[in-house]
């Protein structure tokens, strides 16, 4: 595929190049929408298309005003703050519970392993709208209960509800990534540690944890992005005080679309590039550590 043999016929040559063009077009389709919005977000006008000034590369056609709006308008800064409160807490819950359970699942002789796995993966499989509907009813009762018996204020319960819901949604990702890391884990290491007198806790933190850490971190990043990007559940479970960034974008897209949304989108694209790079790095490091790939 990579090179064309010297004896290729004209037809083969045409096919070879046209195939590359087709693949190129599909890759273009994948990446173009994301790339297009980046220059559009610097538009000096409130338009969603390239102005003649922008096409002429006139500096006057570009401005940072949409970014200024994003970082100063409370309509956007409050949701940003909410997202940055909710996502880390949800991630901590998913990662801590998920890692423990993945370690438990990776042991031999776990009864009902398949059924347990199916339940734990289910938040990823069940359509979000169904999860959101179920949570809508249950969490509103739970919120009332927390206000009444735990004496929490309404805004606290609002956050607790969204955090718990997002933690549940993030768990499958942690389970999957950590289980994948544990597949190559050499059990004799823990036995060796125990043999030399380490308690199970010490063994866990000093032997097992450093080795599975890349999996845990990338699971955590998945859980973080799941919560940070989630809109359906928060729309149903949260109140206006818990409005997150995706929620604000969703409202903007549905009602009155403001060009600031493009600036937000660009910032989020940068965040995802960063996350992608981290996850890829971790994956390679983990494979190298476990000797699964030469690179």
């Amino acid at each position: 595929m990579s090179t064309l043999p010297p004896y290729a016929t004209t037809g083969q040559k045409i096919w070879h190049y046209s195939f590359r063009v087709i693949v190129g077009l599909v890759l273009f389709f994948l990446i173009a929408p994301i790339v297009t919005i980046i220059p559009l977000s610097f538009n000096a006008e409130n338009f969603f298309t390239f102005t003649p000034k922008m096409l002429a590369l006139d500096p006057e056609g570009y401005s940072l005003k949409h970014y200024r709006d994003f970082f100063s308008n409370p309509e956007w800064t409050r949701p940003l703050k909410n997202s940055l409160i909710i996502a880390p807490f949800a991630t901590i819950i998913s990662v801590s519970l998920g890692t423990l359970a993945a370690i438990g699942l990776s042991q031999s002789h776990v009864p009902f392993r398949r059924a347990i796995m199916a339940i734990m993966i289910s938040p990823m499989i069940v359509p979000l709208i169904i999860s959101a509907t179920g949570m809508f009813f249950f969490y509103s009762q739970m919120g009332l209960w927390m206000e009444e018996y735990l004496g929490m204020s309404r805004s606290v319960t609002g956050y607790v509800k969204v955090i718990l819901a997002h933690a549940a949604l993030g768990i499958p990702f942690v389970i999957i990534t950590v289980t994948a890391t544990l597949v190559g884990f050499d059990e004799s290491l823990t036995r060796a540690a125990a043999n030399m007198g380490a308690t199970p806790t010490v063994t866990f933190f000093r032997v097992q944890m450093p080795l599975i850490l890349p999996g845990v971190i990338s699971g955590g990043l998945f859980a973080f992005i799941t919560s940070f990007d989630e809109v359906v559940v928060v729309l149903f479970v949260g109140a206006a005080a818990q409005k997150t960034l995706p929620w604000q974008m969703f409202t903007g897209l549905r009602e009155q679309i403001s060009p600031t949304i493009l600036a937000v989108a660009t910032v989020l694209v940068c965040v995802s590039i960063l996350l992608l790079a981290t996850v890829e790095m971790l994956r390679r490091r983990s494979e190298r550590l476990r000797g699964m790939s030469p690179g």
């Binding site: 002789h109 009864p111 768990i171």
Partner: peptide, 29 residues
């Protein structure tokens, strides 16, 4: 004992998923 230990590790998450996810959906159904 090994089985018990594995289940002990899994239990907190299983409980959490049941409470925050499975029961709400069951109740909705």
């Amino acid at each position: 004992r090994q089985k018990m230990r594995a289940l002990m590790l899994i239990a907190p998450l299983l409980l959490f998923i049941m409470l925050t996810f499975v029961i709400p959906i069951g109740q909705m159904l």
